[in-house]
Write a protein that binds this DNA or RNA. Structure first.
Length: 846
DNA sequence: GTGCCTGCTCACGGG
DNA sequence: GAGCAGGCAC
């Protein structure tokens, strides 16, 4: 028996047809990764193809790694020579070798979104474009679209002569590109476009790669854009052994240029293509698939297919509607806890919570912390987007690529060197006049007339960078980083500062050092370089950063593409959230279709149990919104669900009574109550801050979350700290007018019936009782902060035992009055001595 | 040059 | 809610 016998007939067809163009339409969970890996194995083992001649393109680095691993298991040897990578990584690899042919230096930098914004600001300033008339985001997104469609500045200008705005964008595109070139930098879209340019304009390079890549496979083909299509068209131009795998129903990246016609028109572009349909699903239950099919069939213009499984019907889809997002989050957290404690075979990593927007993670995170459930938030605030990390990376970039002005500008006065805007402007002017980079101008600062005394301040920076550059020539990247930290005194300055989150920033820096070290260890061929590390950083996707472990994963629907979980919660299924307000308002059919595909992706992530939740009201950008149940939920036949949403949608009445014409609430609540796992306490306007995770205060759950999610929170806390005086404003615990939760409470909402009210009362009493001691540990709600921080002295003093949500138990060593709060020194049993502000630490006296 | 305050604007998804 | 630019005082 061979490894191919385990494949079904259609899968085998896709594996064995190795020559010529092949389109595999692979429904969700139909085993497409198996097909690709077996195809690679077949090429190597059965056809004797040199692994070196195979290219497989995946959507994320994580997927690339997993694919390589799986191929490795299937073939005897040689898997490591197969080129498995993402489009962007592959392009970087090609460009590092050949971009000098296009006039760039091979050590080019890769600009992320922030870098792009900084550069665009300068472009707009130099072109006198009024940021009020034309937003930098608008221009950047126009440029991005142009690049994804392979439209050069020149071409763009020719095509866009219609009005003043278009001409301005054309000017900006031109100047932006000029400056990227001057900084020896490429943005993300350039990586693709410059590769096309290279392969088109240099026959010898193109032929070289065409000869090498005799067999090309592309995963997630439905999300490729025009530039990516062109790259694979060029690369496969000689042998035409191109196999693309995708699902038009899962095309969800139009906003970043994905061209769904790449998959819809594949057979037109390659008339000799063989098409294989994989419709048998190996992942989910029939109920889940029926729901997914029912939703997606509302889209027109798709390659019709219908998923089926022999797994059986499975559990019905659970639907729960709540009054607020807080209760929704609480249900999800407690439900997961409940499932895990009832079934010993279940692990936290069997669960995922998916949502439309990253902002929804916040409330969920709060509940997970309170319930001590280990979790990981994918994305949101990217580790590499953190201030201290960006600062240090800018140092590395400056050392690595001396002409990157954006990097130099970032660090020129970090740590403070007394170099301000005026000086920088003078340097820039001098650089412009003399055709120098910013750093080049700084090197000559002594000779610049207008500089005067300030040139004294510039010299130490120039010396620092020069000596680091010399050092970097022979040192490991990690040593360079350590040297930067030492020479700039970056960490020392953080330690001395009274910044709230200095500690977290320092631990982030430690994390960065270990990431550099990891990188050095991961380099198999050649030597680890700064460019190599910076490149890895630039191309890392949110999902790539997720470590394993027994944790619930919280992420956007977009991030969840390609993943599967036994238990999936789809949260916030409300019109206005998902589909989003903008999609609904736009009235654009195709936009709605893309949202629907996203819903399809979400539903099909579930293997066994799918739970859909929504809230009648939620805070969106500071205001309470009342949203009806998502149309996507209403597209699921009632018989597939354990409780159905109201048939008639309800709305916010003119007389300010929410839910006035809501007629189906009882149905959904009955279902909810009968599930038994939550005891029907969905009601309860005032209960959402109280409950302290059922008395479990272990720090395990929290400690496991030291990922970006929790750190990101620290940022928000600080922002709060800076925001005009609601912190420590002295208005007293009960005032708390800034608290979002509190505001919600005030406008809220009568329970619908006496019957529904009962469990709420019982629960509410319970939670009120706890609020006094534990309510303050809510990490996020404005209410918790507003109410707790007020300048009353803490109820503990030196010698008292206290509990901290993150560090566990400890003994108070000192309490001292600081300007706006009390500074408390605590010796924690497990984490040692920490100094913290009482208002933020939320210590609980034991 | 720096730090703080205020008012304004914007709002999805991500390599 | 949150980030940012601009204004102001030191």
């Amino acid at each position: 028996m061979s490894i191919y016998d385990t494949l079904n007939a259609e899968q085998q067809k896709a594996v064995f047809r190795t020559e010529g163009p092949v389109l595999i339409l692979a429904g969700a969970g139909s085993g497409k990764t198996r097909v690709i890996t077996h195809r690679i194995a077949y090429l190597i083992d059965e056809l004797g193809v040199n692994p070196w001649n195979i290219l497989a393109i995946t959507f994320t680095n994580k997927a690339a790694g997993e694919m390589r691993e799986r191929v490795d298991k299937l073939v005897g040897f040689g898997a490591e020579s197969v080129w498995v990578s993402t489009f962007h990584s592959m392009c970087v690899r090609i460009l590092r070798r050949h971009i000098d042919l296009l006039g760039y230096q091979n050590s080019f930098a890769i600009y992320d979104t922030d870098d792009q914004k900084s550069l665009m600001k300068e472009v707009m300033k130099s072109l006198n474009i009024d940021p009020k008339m034309l937003k930098e985001r608008t221009i950047l997104s126009a440029i991005s679209n142009a690049k994804n469609e392979l439209s050069s500045p020149l071409h763009y200008r020719e095509e866009h002569q219609n009005d003043y705005t278009e001409k301005q964008i054309a000017d900006a595109y031109d100047e932006y590109q000029r400056r990227l070139y001057k900084n020896n930098a490429l943005d993300f879209d350039d990586l693709l476009m410059k590769t096309v340019e290279l392969l088109t304009s240099h026959d010898e390079v193109r032929e070289n790669y065409q000869n090498r890549f005799r067999y090309i496979m592309v995963d997630e083909y439905q999300d490729t854009n025009t530039a990516q299509f062109e790259i694979i068209r060029l690369l496969s131009g000689k042998y035409r052994n191109l196999c693309v795998v995708g699902d038009d129903d899962q095309s969800i990246y139009k906003f970043r240029g994905a061209n769904i016609n790449n998959i819809l028109d594949f057979e037109k572009v390659f008339p000799d293509a063989m098409t294989v349909r994989l419709e048998q699903n190996y992942r989910s239950t029939q109920n889940v698939l029926d729901a997914a099919n029912a939703v997606i069939k509302n889209n027109v213009n798709r390659k019709s297919k219908s998923l089926w499984t022999d797994h059986g019907a499975g559990e019905k889809i659970r639907f729960r509607q709540f009054d607020t997002a807080y209760e929704e989050a609480r249900f999800i957290a407690e439900d997961i806890e409940d499932q895990v404690s009832r079934n010993s075979r279940l692990n936290y990593s069997d669960f995922a919570v998916l949502y439309r927007t990253n902002a929804q993670a916040r409330v969920l995170e709060e509940r997970f912390v309170l319930a001590s459930i280990p979790y990981n938030i994918v994305g949101g605030t990217n580790f590499y987007a953190r201030r201290e990390i960006k600062d240090l990376l800018a140092y590395l970039k400056t050392i690595d690529n001396g002409v990157d002005d954006i990097a130099v500008e970032r660090i020129i006065n970090v740590p403070r060197r007394g170099i301000g805007q005026t000086t920088i402007a003078r340097l820039q002017e001098y650089a412009l006049q003399n055709g120098l980079s910013l750093f080049g101008a700084m090197e000559r600062a002594g000779t610049i007339q207008s500089m005067g005394r300030t040139s004294v301040k510039i010299k130490p920076f120039v010396d620092l960078i020069s000596s680091l550059k010399t050092y970097a020539q022979a040192a490991k990247p990690s040593d360079v980083l350590k040297r930067i930290i030492a020479d700039t005194g970056y960490v020392e300055e953080l330690k001395d500062s009274d910044e709230e989150d200095a500690e977290d920033r320092i631990s982030n820096i430690d994390e960065l050092i270990s990431k550099v070290t990891d990188y050095e260890e991961s380099v198999i061929e050649g030597v680890p370089t700064l460019s190599g590390f910076l490149e890895e950083v630039a191309l890392v996707a949110d999902i790539d950063q997720v470590e394993g472990g027994e944790k619930v994963l919280l992420m956007t629907l977009h991030s969840a593409k390609g993943l599967e979980f036994p238990y999936v919660y789809l949260a916030g299924l409300e019109d206005g959230v998902f589909p989003g307000e903008m999609t609904i308002q736009s009235g654009d059919e195709e936009e709605m279709a893309e949202e629907r595909r996203l819903a399809y992706v979400g539903i099909t992530r579930a293997k066994d149990v799918l739970t859909i939740t929504c809230a009648k009201s939620r805070m969106l950008r500071g205001e309470t919104r009342y949203n009806p149940v998502s149309r996507f939920v209403r597209e699921i036949p009632a018989e597939l669900m354990d409780s159905a949403p109201a048939k008639k949608s309800w709305h916010f009445d003119d007389d300010d009574t929410p839910f006035a014409d809501y007629d189906g609430g009882a149905d959904s609540y009955r279902g909810y109550g009968s599930s038994g796992s939550y005891g029907g306490s969905a009601k309860g306007a005032s209960s959402y801050y109280g409950d302290g995770g059922r008395g479990r205060k272990g720090n395990e759950g929290y400690e496991n979350t030291r990922g970006y999610g929790s750190v990101a929170y620290m940022d928000r806390q600080n922002n709060y700290d800076r925001s005009r005086g609601s912190y420590g404003g002295g208005s007293g615990p009960s005032a708390g007018s800034t608290g979002s939760g509190r505001r919600l409470k005030a406008t809220y909402v009568k329970p619908h019936t006496a019957e529904e009210k009962k469990p709420f009362i019982a629960r509410a009493n319970d939670s009120h009782a706890r609020t006094s001691s534990l309510g303050g540990s809510g990490r996020m709600g404005g209410l918790a902060k507003g109410a707790d921080i007020v300048g009353a002295a803490p109820d503990y003093g030196p010698g008292d035992r206290v509990m901290h949500v993150k560090f566990g138990e400890g003994t108070v060593k000192a309490v001292e009055q600081a300007p706006r709060d009390y500074k408390v020194t605590v010796d924690f049993d497990e984490f040692g001595t920490k100094v913290m502000y009482a208002g933020f630490a939320k210590l609980e006296k034991l």
